[in-house]
Amino acid sequence: MTSAVEPRFYTQTWDLSYRHALGDTTSRFLAGLAEQRILGRRCPSCERVIVPARSFCDRDHTATSDWVEVATAGVVEMFTIVHEAFRGLPDPPYALAYATLDGADTALVGYVRGLDLTDLPSAVASLAVGNRVRVAFSDTPTGTAADYWFEPA
């Protein structure tokens, strides 16, 4: 005889630290950010410019070749406004967007600044898919993804 069992839940917290070997491609991409440049790599098979730069094309698994500097402006592909706190991330609310920069074929993720997130309808309208954003760079680069962010164009 079987009887219905109520779902059970277990709460668990993971707090892990990682030390990643970045490799040549990611190291050069991050160095480009410190130089206020967005660098991608071209796939010699499908000719796409992949940003952020990757060693291999995610479409056809071909090793990428040439470095390509792309523009610092592009189009919003998707976005989210975060209202819940996550350890190690900014205090909410904050916005994240994926934008395809001019000259790139893939989208780059970044924080969005320059929005009034207390006026949610206005912020959502500013980040609508298809709207343009520009990349802004830190005056004190650290060679990390924190060296850039998007702003509405």
Rank of each mutant, 00 (worst) to 15 (best):
M1G: 14
M1H: 12
M1N: 11
S3F: 15
A4E: 09
A4Q: 11
E6T: 11
E6I: 12
P7A: 08
R8V: 14
R8G: 09
F9T: 14
F9M: 03
Y10V: 12
Q12H: 14
D15C: 00
D15I: 00
L16H: 15
H20N: 08
H20C: 04
H20G: 01
L22E: 07
L22T: 07
G23A: 06
D24M: 07
D24I: 04
T26R: 15
T26V: 11
S27A: 13
R28P: 02
L30Y: 09
A31F: 02
A31M: 04
A34C: 09
E35Q: 15
E35Y: 10
Q36G: 05
Q36L: 04
I38C: 12
I38L: 14
I38G: 07
L39T: 10
L39W: 11
L39G: 07
G40T: 01
R42G: 00
R42W: 00
C43Q: 03
C43E: 01
P44V: 04
P44L: 06
S45C: 05
E47G: 00
R48F: 01
V49C: 03
P52F: 03
A53W: 00
A53Y: 01
S55L: 05
S55I: 00
F56E: 05
F56I: 11
D58L: 10
D60A: 02
H61V: 08
S65N: 11
W67I: 10
W67L: 13
V68N: 06
E69R: 10
V70E: 07
A73H: 15
V76H: 09
E77A: 14
T80S: 15
I81D: 08
H83Y: 15
H83S: 10
H83A: 07
E84Y: 04
A85M: 08
R87Q: 11
G88V: 08
L89G: 00
L89H: 13
P90F: 07
D91I: 09
D91A: 14
D91F: 04
P92H: 10
P93R: 06
Y94H: 06
A95K: 05
A97F: 01
A99F: 10
A99D: 02
T100I: 09
D105G: 15
A107G: 11
L108E: 10
V109T: 14
Y111T: 14
V112Q: 08
R113Y: 04
G114K: 01
L117S: 02
P121W: 07
P121L: 04
P121C: 04
S122Y: 01
S122C: 02
A123G: 05
A123W: 04
V124H: 03
V124E: 15
L127K: 10
A128K: 06
N131V: 02
N131E: 15
N131Q: 11
R132K: 12
R132V: 10
V133R: 07
V135C: 10
A136P: 02
A136H: 13
S138I: 06
T140D: 11
P141H: 07
P141K: 15
T142H: 01
G143M: 04
D147V: 05
Y148C: 03
W149M: 06
F150Y: 11
F150L: 14
E151R: 00
A153L: 12
